[in-house]
Simulated assay, not measured.
Amino acid sequence: MKVKVQWVGQLPAKGQTPQPGPSTTTKAELKALEIFRDAKASFAPQLVAFCCMVQDDRGPFPNGFLSFTVMTKLPGQSLFGKYWNMSQKERDDITPKAVQALRSIYALGIEPVDRGLRNVIWHPETKQCSIIDFEIWSPINGTFANETSELRRWGLLRAPAAKDHWTAWNMMYR
């Protein structure tokens, strides 16, 4: 479950209420979670329930929003801080499963933008790889063309040393 407390930014005039609704990142994640739910996807979380309400005067941010997103919990743990300490064999088991999960997500028209090992979940017992965190994504028609580049963007494959900061940035984000 994700709980967000959202401040309006400017208190409305007396007697007015803010437009109720989730933030843009919450809206994006809701859309992705609905797509995964409708596709019965096993490689990404699915939306279970959502609620958004305006806080009253007793809340931490009066007139701000409270949003509750309930999604399925995927088995396994994040690879952040673990992946590069694993044996080469373990990493070799993970890589094709990560590619499979990513291709499945792309096939549903979603290109994750927040790439990183923190958003890759690995369940060693079932050998399943999943992707989480879809607050930022882009609609896409197709899939990634270069598997090596995509794995590098996610931190699943080491990139050769870049000659300077800008080259490194472009390799990661472009």
Results as ranks from 00 to 15, higher is better:
D164P: 06
W137L: 00
S104M: 07
E150S: 07
W154L: 03
V120D: 06
D93V: 11
P124M: 08
Y83G: 11
G81F: 05
I132H: 02
D93M: 13
T126L: 03
A161D: 14
A107P: 09
S104F: 14
F134Y: 04
W122Q: 00
T143P: 10
S149P: 05
K82I: 08
N141L: 12
W137P: 04
R91D: 08
I105A: 10
N119E: 05
S149Y: 14
A98Y: 04
L117W: 07
V113G: 06
S130Q: 05
R152A: 12
Q88Y: 15
F144R: 07
I105W: 11
L102T: 00
W122P: 03
G76Y: 04
I94K: 11
S149I: 14
S78M: 09
E90W: 10
N146M: 03
L156R: 01
I136G: 01
G142H: 11
D92G: 06
I132Y: 00
S130F: 08
L79G: 00
V113P: 03
D133Y: 00
H123F: 10
V113F: 09
V99F: 09
F134M: 01
W137F: 10
S130H: 01
R115E: 05
R153G: 12
H165F: 14
T95M: 08
H165L: 15
S78N: 00
N141K: 15
L157T: 07
R91V: 01
N85P: 02
F80T: 13
I94F: 04
N141S: 15
T126E: 11
P124Y: 02
E135G: 15
T148Q: 13
T95G: 01
K89H: 15
R158L: 06
L157P: 00
E135S: 14
Y106I: 10
N141A: 13
R158F: 05
G109K: 08
Y83W: 09
A98I: 07
T148H: 14
E90D: 14
E125A: 15
N146L: 11
E111F: 08
T143N: 14
P124V: 06
D133Q: 09
S78L: 09
Q77Y: 09
P112R: 02
L117Y: 08
H123W: 10
R158P: 07
G155S: 03
I121V: 14
E111Q: 11
L108H: 03
S149V: 13
Y83E: 10
D133H: 01
V120P: 01
F144S: 10
W84S: 00
G109N: 01
G116L: 08
W122H: 04
G155E: 07
D93C: 13
Y83F: 15
N119H: 14
G76N: 00
I110S: 02
P160D: 12
T143K: 10
I131H: 00
A107S: 15
L117T: 12
Y83V: 08
K97Q: 13
I121N: 04
D92N: 08
G109P: 04
P160V: 11
K97N: 03
R103T: 11
S104E: 08
T95R: 15
P124I: 05
P139C: 05
